[in-house]
Design a protein around this nucleic acid. Structure first.
Lengths: 111, 111
DNA sequence: TCTATTAATCGTATATTTGCGATATAGGAT
DNA sequence: ATCCTATATCGCAAATATACGATTAATAGA
């Protein structure tokens, strides 16, 4: 029975996992690239660039937004998405921190 | 219907997503921490430390192994897991590279 | 040889993710 | 007011992930 056991882990572990999860689909990585490529926020073109249906892209955008990696403002007929650099950098810094702390703990080679 | 569309993205995007996916569960992050903590590879204790059933831990270990993040050698009754630092560093470097390239492309603030 | 121990694998139940078409919504243009 | 365009949301189907107990496999020790 797939009871969700995620809450038994530390807050930090959950945060890092959530960040990784947001990045865990090639479509979302492609979306982030597209968002970064354009300076202005005319973001409707993402649908044209990606080989996915409009509704699917919209869903991926929503997930990125829920994860806090991007901001989006609905503006009636069109909407505007862009990367939330502050949040993104924070997540990335945490992620780097994890990596570094793992390495420090493991100076001795093992296998 | 949920046809797997991952292959329409670039190799790199798929690799990065796969790495992120491996890190996208708090249990797997906790496992990596435990593996890093111990210098020797007596890794049966991971099951004791984590609040999960033995079979579940085994499954997470398998996924980390499939992703290439850890090595594991079965040794009869007990088995030995440890982080594959070479691969891990490679993945992390790629991930950092993505982050950096996103930032470079987006010097101008947008929203 | 028999038994205990350790860990992988199988089977199963449930939850979540992915994807799409259809529909709803919300402004802009005519 | 009516139509057009761009997006979000809904409903559904299929695939994957998560979790566990039971079983199997493999070896170490009595």
């Amino acid at each position: 029975m797939a009871v969700n056991k995620k809450e038994v882990f530390t807050q930090k572990e959950q945060e890092l996992a959530a960040f990784a999860k947001a990045m865990s689909h090639p479509a979302r990585i492609a979306i982030l690239k597209e968002l970064a490529k354009r300076n202005e926020c005319i973001c409707g073109e993402i649908v044209d660039v990606l080989p996915l249906a409009q509704s699917t892209v919209s869903q991926h955008l929503k997930e990125l937004k829920n994860a806090g990696l991007i901001d989006g403002t609905v503006d009636g007929p069109r909407s505007c998405y862009c990367i939330n650099w502050k949040a993104f950098e924070k997540f990335f810094a945490e992620f780097s921190g994890l990596f570094t702390s793992l390495k420090i703990k493991n100076e001795k080679a093992c296998c």
